[in-house]
Design a protein around this nucleic acid. Structure first.
Lengths: 187, 187
DNA sequence: TGAACATTGTTGAATGTTAAACAATTCCCG
DNA sequence: CGGGAATTGTTTAACATTCAACAATGTTCA
């Protein structure tokens, strides 16, 4: 005899809307990438995250965590991306079990070609649709969810990949991540 | 020579966090349903939406829209659900092309058995993680996105399926949807 | 040291999803 | 009415994802 705390109207609305937005936005973004560049959104995410990593490489596990994918999926994706020449896998020098995923020059070029249109899609179908005054509270809500779920990834900065070729660390230690994505890039 | 409006830090953070939360929450919810009840979240959604529809049935197209799925996916899902006896397909009496998806008694019973645990999962991994003061702005943000995307579904109310057996319309015409999901249901 | 255990990543088979082509029906309008 | 266009839903085949089992390496600690 357990008493269930059903969702009230507002909570229900929030949950249903969240599901709908998640799926619609994901679908729109994915379809734009497939249609215009013949690449899936999840493949794009791999390239993008690698491009921002210190030496444009990440351990497989880290990468999987970052894009919130099971390891097995990442393995399959990497196999395809590697065949296309956009990514390389190397044995990790510091851990015999480990594998390092590295973005190739070709992969970076591809990403640089795609990013502008992608950002536009993200704006048109998500960011620019949200009224200014709700940006910050929404971000806080999302971060609260992330914080409470064990194993959730850090936030990373997504920006012009053409500018992120230096290998400057974005993670943990050096948190002056602002410098990496100045608004002045909008040239 | 197009000038790209890259995302600034806050926007980037919002986008990345949104993607992460979407995938993490969807995964957690889906896994709980599979583990405890051997049903996928998307199958659950079908049962839930049908249970709230006027006579516990919907046109295939409406249903696909509601759950934000391509029609082809819904067809496959329905085939499986029909085999399991939780749903039935009938020819639509008013449109020769149409097909009507109807929840069976068995399907409703299943849903009633599952719903409490499901709601708990949704609370634990999403709703209850969001601070009170961000609930409303977040909802507004999501609704703004939905409103601006053509073909986005209406919000529906998700509540105790045991109570929604009367066939009272929730859509369009009768918008006193509050009555359907009073907080007092939390018994 | 070495034996149990933990971690890392891959593999293969089962399953689910997708886009495109299709058949059936209805709608629009001359 | 009747013919072209639009809508509805299914099907097929290609593709992607998932889980569980696995191999390989690292870690712990007696």
């Amino acid at each position: 005899m357990e008493s269930v705390r059903w969702l009230n109207d507002e909570e229900t609305d929030l949950w249903i809307s969240f599901l709908a937005v998640s799926q619609m936005v994901e679908r729109l973004v994915d379809q734009q990438l497939r249609r215009d560049f013949n690449i899936s959104h999840s493949d794009y995410e791999i390239l993008a995250r690698l491009s921002q990593a210190p030496g444009r490489w990440l351990r497989m596990g880290e990468l999987a965590n970052t894009i919130v994918a099971p390891k097995s999926r990442l393995s399959h994706q990497m196999e395809r991306l590697e065949k296309s020449g956009w990514v390389e896998r190397k044995n990790c020098p510091t851990d015999g079990r480990g594998v390092v995923a590295e973005l190739t020059e070709a992969g970076l070029d591809l990403l640089i070609g795609i990013a502008p249109a992608h950002v536009t899609t993200v704006r048109e179908n998500f960011i620019d649709l949200i009224p200014q005054e709700q940006l910050e509270p929404t971000l806080q809500a999302l971060k609260a969810v992330l914080k409470s779920i064990p194993g959730a990834p850090q936030s990373l900065v997504e920006c012009d990949p053409a500018e992120v070729t230096t290998g400057t660390p974005t993670c943990e230690t050096d948190t002056t991540s602002n410098e990496e994505c100045p608004e002045s890039w909008a040239k």
